[in-house]
Amino acid sequence: MEYIIVTFESTNFAIQAESVLKSRNLNIQIIPTPREITLSCGISILTQIENLNEIDELVKLGKIRIKEVYKYVKDEVKTLERLRP
């Protein structure tokens, strides 16, 4: 399965983005930011890769503020690949 992980500059931006994305009925999950991305105690959003366009759109409109987006493949071997910025 292919997902994206969206990271944020602050926990508050993550919480705010969660509420914006949920109000648009996007299927998202709050997850701890994987250690491969940062060792600090961060919160990220996990969602299907199909939702990337809508997230880009929301960023452009200034509705959410994000830091990075990673493509996350969750097979036997998990891989992370930076997509944004």
Partner: peptide, 14 residues
């Protein structure tokens, strides 16, 4: 509580 609920989601996912 808002932070607490967020942390709980993060915890259960972990």
């Amino acid at each position: 509580d808002v932070l607490g609920r967020t942390l709980m989601k993060s915890y259960i996912y972990s």
